[in-house]
């Protein structure tokens, strides 16, 4: 085929284009709704959540994944654009990791050492490792479908960040159910659960986000 002929057919294809940001919203929402339905029907919020909410540990455990979520979405979009600039958002993420580390240090300072182990292990580590990835699965699929419209230079990395985005959502949702409030627990088990989702995202992305 002549290049000029190809160009003519490309110009004739006037299918309207969805912006990447909008595609991410449309892709994520159905997955989010599925997870919310699962949450409402199967696990639900912990008892007396509203009364407990002012406690700094509980506030932190819910707000932290929300902050990661808010950062990972735009970061995924930057990674899906040729010549996108992920750096500012990477700095924000590093900042969030510093905040998490600080929360762990403060917890170690205020908590008597004989409680460290108890708080770190918590009641529900295994449930956490199952429920966070479970509630992240559908949002991850939707996110990857949206990013498929993009052009990621590094598909595996874009997939991992999609996993961070979906995993942080799952973690924020799970945080309203989970009875373990210590930053020691959050920093270990929530992170591990999100890392699982990120690994799945990286693996899926390295295949599905190639273009």
């Amino acid at each position: 085929m002549k290049t000029d002929d190809l160009i003519r057919s490309l110009a004739a294809d006037d299918t309207p284009r969805l912006s990447l940001a909008r595609a991410l919203v449309y892709g994520f929402l159905p997955g989010m709704v599925l997870s919310l339905i699962f949450y409402a029907l199967v696990i639900g919020p912990r008892p007396h959540l509203a009364e407990l909410l002012p406690a700094p540990r509980i506030l932190f455990k819910i707000a932290f994944p929300i902050a990661v979520f808010a950062c990972a979405g735009p970061l995924a979009l930057q990674l899906a654009r040729p010549r996108g600039d992920p750096r500012p958002l990477v700095y924000v993420l590093i900042g969030l990791l510093v905040v998490l580390a600080a929360a762990v240090v403060i917890e170690l300072l205020v908590l008597p050492p004989d409680l460290w182990r108890v708080r770190f292990i918590g009641h529900n580590a295994r449930v956490c490792l199952v429920l966070i990835p479970l509630m992240s699965a559908a949002p991850l699929v939707g996110t990857l479908i949206a990013l498929h419209r993009g052009a990621a230079s590094n598909p595996g990395l874009a997939g991992a960040v999609a996993g961070l985005f979906a995993g942080a959502f799952g973690a924020a949702l799970y945080a309203t159910h989970c009875p373990d409030d210590s930053p020691l627990f959050v920093a270990t088990w929530y992170s591990l659960a999100i890392l699982i989702v990120m690994s799945v995202g990286a693996l899926a992305g390295s295949r599905f986000l190639r273009w």
Partner: peptide, 10 residues
């Protein structure tokens, strides 16, 4: 050219 066309939204 095909990729530029299909990835215009990026």
């Amino acid at each position: 050219l095909l990729a530029i066309h299909l990835k215009r939204q990026t």
